[in-house]
Design a protein around this nucleic acid. Structure first.
Lengths: 344, 344
DNA sequence: CTGTTAGCGCTTTCAA
DNA sequence: TTGAAAGCGCTAACAG
């Protein structure tokens, strides 16, 4: 009962050899229907179940992929993982998830343990911008397994990635604010060493320029993506001589904090200040004063990342595939930034 | 370069045997310091990395655990998984996550594939109440690996679980509504075949009884945990002769839908109707009209579930451990149900 | 169509 | 302290 049945057990019972059993079980063409049926019946009777571990060792394919994210309990990452899992499970892969908590050492350790566990690929959103310089990171390339970045990527030649066009997102959001009549637009940014934040910032800047609004360094605040930091930032901003009339935040949480503080001071949204967030967290939609934001289609992003992995892992040519998928972000205009009705 | 170095490669270089290398690498006491240092140095030079797959096949321990949930992109499950992963990674385990989407066949298939992959344990929140009757489910017991339920459990003797006291939660929430002066309290329920929903319902009922309020079957609506269903339910309820003045919803999403519909009809919250939800989804806190709800401490739940697994997997005695951990839910009283100031 | 053999990479008796 | 050999469970090349 404790012992599990192997193909040898079946072989012995049937007085044949393990190889034959294996062939029968795998629908090999080189086997008679008679023995196959015999084997199948016996396998069933003995509750045989294939040990994938043995197969993995033999074939060098574990059928596991590692997914590395800063943390799983944000709607964005959870949704991406949802997409990855749905797609990969259907293709016989299991998804191992690991969280870095933005800790560099943990991120390294995760890569090492995943590699030792012989994962067939790694899909990751980097936490540490310098991660690719680490020795452990090179092990991924040495092992020749697919590496796919999603959302937060490092710029490495030959490595595929699935991201959204953060520049366009920043551009659209800012332009929208301008169209609403905003002239003094603040940008709540993040760690601009990360592409995602930098590109949003660049999009913001470009939109200002295109619309003939002077860029003001004082209007760009680098903060963490938290409610608390959003509040604090706004508290300071409202004391400026030229108090802002629009805010483009790189984070929904910071946008929320900003909104709370603004209301707290009796200032009206969107009449006095328009606000746009980022990520389409569920709460942005549910608020009475719904928050305009940018949707990143995370589930789709996950599915695509999984597809890229599948293409790559099934690619037998030596030709390296580098696929950079860039999704188009969708600006969701809601009450927090809608002064006047907009067509469409 | 493509080929990875094994202990045999190291052995050959050093003109010793693989067994010795293995011993050196594992800090076996039965080895001379000299050869150990030699091996370690060479291993390092050759970029040796242990193949956990071989170890797993040999030892019968994969160091992987399977986590099965309906879906990962709800704050509750994502948070539980966060707790599980944090705890288990620290103990050398990898976490494989699988989603059932509440599909019975998928749930069965997941169990089978996880078992074939030789996971060392399964932590799950069931989707299908009859899952334990399935043949595949028995494979878990035959394999003697730990099975731990969290949140949505099946009642099986000998199986550990980590849940919250849903009865108490329902009781507290309902009693709170009564204290606020509500007399006609509706309960938006779920699939009462699942313990969690049934217990919340029973707590609700008990609170009514204890406070001398007659139970009214018409006030219990079984719906899905969605905004849409919450809206629809309330639409009907408001047409009743005895329109409700309090709502205890088993889901935050349904509570939100209820609130939207109520406001839509120009009815005031909490003055005319008080509402309490369930799960402490982030949005409940962030709404201008913040929603009272029940916190289930999901991260802690995950950590504890992981602990129970670790205890079980390390338990060498044959004595079966059945551990039923029941966490105390916390009622969070917010604006949606607070008519008058409450002490504490 | 079936059997034999070897091997995936590692650990672990048993001898020496 | 080290070596030799077996085995975890499976597949695949080669014979027959």
């Amino acid at each position: 009962m404790g012992k599990k049945t192997t193909i040898y057990d079946i072989a012995k019972k049937l007085d044949i050899t393990a190889a034959t059993v294996s062939r029968a079980l795998n629908n090999s063409p080189k086997i008679s229907k008679k023995t196959r049926d015999l084997v199948l019946e016996m396998a069933n009777k003995m509750n045989y179940e294939q040990n994938k571990l043995a197969l993995a060792l033999k074939s060098g394919k574990s059928n596991n992929v590692g997914v590395i994210v800063p943390r799983i309990d944000s709607n964005f990452f959870a949704s991406v993982i949802r997409g990855i899992e749905e797609n990969l499970f259907a293709h016989g892969y299991h998804v191992i998830i690991c969280q870095t908590h933005n800790n560099e050492n943990i991120e390294i350790e995760i890569i090492n343990t995943l590699l030792n566990a012989q994962v067939d690929g790694i899909l990751m959103s980097i936490s540490n911008v310098d991660i690719y310089k680490k020795e452990s990171f090179n092990r991924i390339f040495k092992k020749q397994i697919p590496l796919i970045f999603f959302d937060r990527k490092a710029n490495i030649e030959g490595v595929s990635s699935v991201t959204i066009n953060d520049f366009e997102a920043g551009y659209k959001a800012t332009k929208h604010l301008i169209k609403q009549g905003c002239k003094k637009i603040v940008h709540l940014s993040g760690n601009t060493l990360l592409d995602i934040f930098n590109n949003r910032f660049l999009g913001y800047k470009q939109a200002l320029e295109d619309e003939g609004i002077e860029f003001n360094e004082d209007y760009v605040i680098r903060i963490k993506s938290t409610v608390e930091d959003g509040r604090k930032a706004v508290k300071k901003l409202l004391k400026l001589k030229k108090s802002p009339d629009g805010i483009f935040s790189s984070s929904d949480y910071a946008a929320l904090g900003a909104i709370q503080e603004i209301k707290n001071q009796g200032i009206k949204i969107p009449e006095d200040i328009c606000v746009v967030g980022f990520a389409n967290e569920p709460f942005t939609k549910f608020m009475e004063l719904s928050i305009s934001t940018v949707d990143q289609s995370p589930v789709e992003m996950g599915k695509i990342a999984a597809n890229v992995f599948l293409e790559q892992v099934n690619n037998t040519d030596n030709a390296k595939i580098e696929k950079k998928v860039v999704l188009t972000p969708e600006l969701l205009i809601r009450k927090s930034s809608l002064k006047k009705p907009v067509s469409n």
